[in-house]
Design a protein around this nucleic acid. Structure first.
Lengths: 408, 408
DNA sequence: GATATTTATTTTAGCACCTAAAGTAAATAA
DNA sequence: TTATTTACTTTAGGTGCTAAAATAAATATC
């Protein structure tokens, strides 16, 4: 008689099982129970359902049988083909498109040079539709369905409303981009800030498992940040939280790409470093407003080799970052601040200035126990994170979908 | 056979009923159902239990019967004497002690002048024990039990560990203060930052109901802040989050009470304003390092009457606040920033500088839709909030307690 | 090779919730 | 007095969980 159940425990437990399998690979029922704090009887019941729905399967017993007495464990694994998700990373003049399967593995990755700055919102939607259609045609037959799409965008986005508020890769603003894709592909579309994608990859690493409050600062052409509070990205009122790059170092200071003065980004981003250096140093030619990796490496080399002008530029950048991080510690007091992004190439040249500025700025009580670390940069990380977030966001739907499919 | 229940819905629903009654006063069963999304059958069952436990009671029908057909509603209300909580606010040279009943009403309030800066941690504990014992002797006979104590302290506290890390009212540091009180009074002791107490009072106001992400800045002798994320205070890794006062305005700027330079507090707090003014203006005599309300009002008057030196001081304070608020907007992007505390007396003198600095610092996309408002100051608000937080924190225990009491 | 032991999974029995619907209570309107 | 309306309670039934018992599938022992 009581149909509309208010108790979500079955759904919660089922999702927990799916996520455990995704994170840990094949796991036995009894271990799924202990890992998630539920009885193995419940796991039996949940896994029976999931097998029936085709979302998981029992793995055939290993040939070299594991040692030990007793009935051997029957490992359960996700069916990788149960669904797939697509993540598209939108950067300046490039898009990357990655397909991941239900188990979280990357199955396909492609890059395209695209003049992003000259696209209209409509152009962009059309382009994305084309590219996604193409990979779907190529790959979807192996999968039961496309469960979701994640758009990882640099800049300010509102994930709730699916609006790109402002991105350095695009010349238009305030465009609602996800609805059309959602309708076209009949799946949910997740709009995410690129830093949030990276932060969720990093937060999943065992080394950072004890850091529920994690701040990730991404240095690169611009400067981005993600704040994870209890492991979930903090979004703020309209998605423009965590704009570390535009917090202030010097009121009335250097000009920033945002149009204002004194932002941290105006000192420590690639374009700011190169701008400060271009007039005084001999550097590779090229668009100095959008320096290439090669140009930036040349500049970093100079600083590390002891060139006083280059050193001075990196020291000032380090000071700006130091003040910015001091403010982040005062306001967020996270467990860990991780510095990454392509700009970490210059970390060694800024390091001393960062730490000394930080020490000058904050007393020990406020600095607290926060660790500050840097972390090697991998350009594929964004899409890895996007895939993970898209899967997480769509597990509930996938479940529902396969339930109704079985019933019919 | 299934004893250790994993399903917390009964407890959740019961607590929801108690909280609704506390927030809204007497409510009928049917309305408790709609307000909390549960069926009235469940409310009947929950309220029967609570009545049996003596935590609530049916209110006798109103004599001037409310108009309308049908069976009249039977209103249920909390039994105010079911429990009480004590909140102690610790400020410089003063403590305030307030007793609240189970329904959230203040039943008693007292102030004591205490030389807080010369107390040791041990002295403080002894003093608190005495004062609490005294009010208990006076009031407790009417109550079934003392459910909890809230210590509202200015400065950096770690609520999890019950440690006062640093407070301007105290000369000792890193003292664990709650254990002894908890043992002495057999109840849980909550250690809270004073700004968090005030923020939870403000967040409960209907005017701010649509602001789940709320920042409250408290101006006064020092500068405090509280950040509510989805309505709950954000604490950070070790409780020292939201130290707005020690975020930076000018690296290498004015000296702050924390020992570092350039903090916002070093420009916009009472002591900073008075320090800047004392040498140049004729002001009431007194301890200029700890200016009194009267001294501060004199200074504010001068600025509002057009004295150029006083105006300049408030303008610079407004600039510092403007930069600080810009950083808060960039990093937290809250729905609302509320400025309060005794220092709002000077808000009119700083206002123009705050807003112009903010506009210069942030582009519209980053400023987003955040409202910035000021709000009249009431010195009793801290304890009101402490009472509310202590009740909320102890409802579960109170429930358990009265259950076991009935069973025996 | 038969039996004991160990460990994993499934089945069984029962409890603690909740809800919809039916039943009851207590008022006003006709 | 009866009908109507609204509030509350009781009943009946469903979901979902767990502990314990039963079963399954190995290895160890004699």
């Amino acid at each position: 008689m009581a149909l509309p159940s208010t108790d979500t425990s079955r759904l919660d437990n089922t999702l927990a099982v799916i996520r455990t399998l995704r994170d840990q690979g094949p796991v036995a029922r009894i271990d799924l129970g202990t890992l998630n704090g539920i009885s193995s009887a419940t796991v039996t019941s949940i896994s029976a359902e999931l097998i029936q729905q085709g979302l998981i399967s029992e793995r055939p017993p290993e040939t070299p049988r594991p040692s030990g007495r007793g009935r051997p464990k029957t490992l359960i694994e996700l069916n990788p083909n149960a669904a797939c998700v697509v993540c598209i990373k939108l950067s300046i003049n490039e898009i990357q498109l990655v397909v991941g399967d239900f188990s979280g593995q990357v199955r396909h990755s492609e890059h395209h040079a695209v003049p992003t700055l000259s696209l209209s919102a409509d152009d962009l939607e059309t382009l994305l539709e084309e590219k996604i259609s193409a990979v779907c045609a190529l790959l979807l037959k192996g999968f039961q369905r496309l469960a979701g799409i994640c758009l990882a965008v640099q800049g300010v986005v509102s994930s709730q409303s699916g609006t790109i508020i402002w991105s350095p890769a695009l010349s238009f603003r305030n465009a609602s981009i996800s609805t059309r894709l959602a309708e076209r592909f009949h799946c949910s579309v997740l709009l995410e800030n690129d830093a949030n994608c990276i932060a969720s990859v990093l937060a999943a690493k065992p080394a950072y498992a004890d850091c529920p409050n994690l701040v990730v600062i991404m240095l690169g052409y611009g400067i981005g940040m993600s704040v994870l509070i209890n492991g979930v990205p903090y979004l703020g009122a309209n998605g423009s939280a965590a704009e570390f790059g535009h917090s202030k170092y010097q009121p009335d200071g250097a000009l920033c790409a945002c149009g204002r003065r004194g932002c941290i980004e105006a000192y420590a981003s690639d374009y700011a470093l190169y701008r400060a250096a271009a007039d005084h140093l001999e550097l590779p030619s090229g668009d100095s407003a959008h320096p290439s990796e090669q140009q930036m490496q040349a500049l970093t080399q100079l600083a590390l080799q002891g060139d006083p002008v280059a050193q001075g530029i990196y020291t000032e950048a380090g000071r700006a970052l130091g003040v910015g991080i001091a403010n982040v510690l005062a306001l967020f007091n996270p467990d860990l601040v991780l510095i990454t992004g392509s700009g970490v190439r210059g970390f060694d040249a800024m390091q001393a200035a960062i730490y000394s500025t930080l020490d000058e700025a904050l007393v020990a009580e406020l600095k607290g126990t926060t660790r500050i670390e840097n972390c090697a940069w991998d350009r594929d990380m964004t899409c890895m994170g996007g895939i993970a977030m898209a899967l997480n966001a769509t597990d509930g739907e996938t479940l529902l979908n396969s339930q109704t499919a079985r019933e019919a």
